[in-house]
Amino acid sequence: MSKHSRLLLVALAIIVIAGLIIIPMNFNRYGLYILSQWAVMTIAAMGLNLTLGYAGQVSLAQGAFVGIGAYGAAILTTHGWPLISALGLVIVICFIVGWLLGYPALRVQHHYLAFVTLAFSTLMFLVFRNESWLTNGIYGISNIPRPEIFGFPTRKPLPFYYLCLGSLGLVTLAMWWLIRSPWGRAFMALRENPIRAQSLGIDTRRYTLMAFAIGSALGGIAGVLYAPLTQYVDPVPFNLQLSLDLLMMVIVGGSGFMLGPFLGAMIAVLLPEWLRFAEGYYLMLYAAAVIALLIYSPSGILGILDRYLSSRRTQAASALRAAAQSKLEAAR
């Protein structure tokens, strides 16, 4: 990428971030709630994007990890724990569970991890629903408090939105660093060609598990924010459907692109809201839009951009070649 376009990108990023901070200031409560939901789902989708997009492992358990996070936060904060310590515990739990769940993926490849994680999702839903002593079963946990951050209460919609946005910012920075680190390169080597990665001395076992465990922990973080956002947690939102929705966010946004989950979560969370003018038909329109998008670009929204950029690059290169050619001929 040229220096010029990089500058352009940085400027664009700053404008978007400033926009996300300033514009919602005069949003109503509904708008802030939806935007907070978008931020939370983006975090969960980023985790899955690491597992799937960078390390190439299909997981259908991300929704279950969001559920573990949400229940962890709900149970602990209603028992008087601060949210931050609930977060710490949830990250550790999700990381360990993710690590253990990744083991079957090592025995067999490809869609089998999807199947194991599918089973895990169903099991977790049953645990959330049936273990009433812990989760209050189907009645769910209500009155989940919103935290105080450095003494600032986040009970109102705007401060809580900033909490979600700030968390999203931190997670994004961490992810950006991770992907550029040797680990990130190892993950990608794993996706592109596991055997070659192994022959280059990458411990494929460890990195596969690591990618899956980190991705799961991010799901947990999203859940920890989800609980105080809705202030009510029950088992139904964390059934298999959420995992499938998150998978959709990653694919539709553009799997393996850093910004994919942001756009994917926009499609999944914001698009249905924009389509609500169609009333009874809004979900139909939504389904049609997703299908049309995937037919047009199976590699997601960023796939379109990627194609556009690379075709422009080829054009630019051939233009350069042509110019050089004519110069050469002129010189001859």
Partner: peptide, 27 residues
């Protein structure tokens, strides 16, 4: 979905209705 219900009720209340009807699910 209770999470979506919350958003929609919030939206409805932002529009200052006379009365709010629903939802049907206890959660």
């Amino acid at each position: 979905n209770p999470g979506v219900a919350r958003a929609q009720v919030q939206k409805a209340l932002d529009g200052e209705p006379y009365v709010l009807l629903g939802p049907g699910y206890s959660g």
